[in-house]
Amino acid sequence: MDAMVRELSYAQAIQEAMAIAMDMDERVFLMGEDIGVYGGAFQVTGDLVERYGTERVIDTPISELGGAGVAVGAALTGMRPIFEFQFSDFATLAMEQIVNQAAKMRFMLGGEVSVPVVMRFPAGSGTGAAAQHSQSLEAWLGHVPGLKVIQPATPYDAKGMLLAAVADPDPVMIFEHKLLYKMKGPVPEGYYTVPIGKADIRREGRDLTIVATSIMVQKALDAAATLEAEGIDVEVVDLRTIRPMDKQTVIDSVKKTSRLMCVYEAVKTLGIGAEVSAMIAESEAFDYLDAPIVRLGGAETPIPYNPELEKAAVPQVPDIITAARDLVKGVR
């Protein structure tokens, strides 16, 4: 029998996943800044403290490095912490524990331990929060062997991938775009997982593959709807996981469409688009390409405060439409 499917927001889906994880396993607990009575800066933990108490929904001091380290230490010794960074930008304060400790501990100790910690990072621009609260730093962590880095783009995936992350024996970093928190979509009740390391073809098409991440998936789908009216048939691949990357799904798609565009919000240079492009250039799909690969990424600037500048700093639907049209028509 199919589970009951409701419309939930992305934030509600995450909250439900955390509640299910805590119901299923007493080792699971939540840590973060103002995640208790405040409910989290984006109300993702909401009222969970009322259901699970302050012992399992732990407000930390404003100590990102120490807090992340406590989560790592708890995971190392048998617990299953879910650690919320208030903003993904604050990962910069905790990089030591994430990169040197969580990611490497199993390796350094020859496989004697594992670190099943989940870290959640509200990310991205569009909220007027300016340069220190709007970054997309997922590629930083994607560069580190030992970590798994995911970017769910829908409420369904947000719940299923969080539950997969909690069940995963290794550290999983979840980047949640802040503008997605209010996005609604169908979410089944109860427990299910969406696998880490598997991309999803959101829309099938013949003329062009757009590999998108996070909020850019929806923007690519919106662009594809417009382009369809012009007779351009776009395939949209939601990468979902940036480490380990699902290369085969992208390769197969590019072999089918012969054109590739990567769309992501993070700064364009040295990012996910570079990785996907290089991966295709190294693969058998290279011979199928009919046009140069195109990357659409964030501007080479910090995120500006002014709303018009802020929008201009990251790819928007019209940018995707124009770039896709030019790519298919060979305007380069």
Binding site: L65, G69, A71, V72, G73, A74
Partner: peptide, 22 residues
Amino acid sequence: NLGANGIVGGGIPIAVGAALSS
């Protein structure tokens, strides 16, 4: 012994996490 550490101070929050587990 949860491990020596190459980062000065790196093990201190980890010990607190282990104590939280306890």
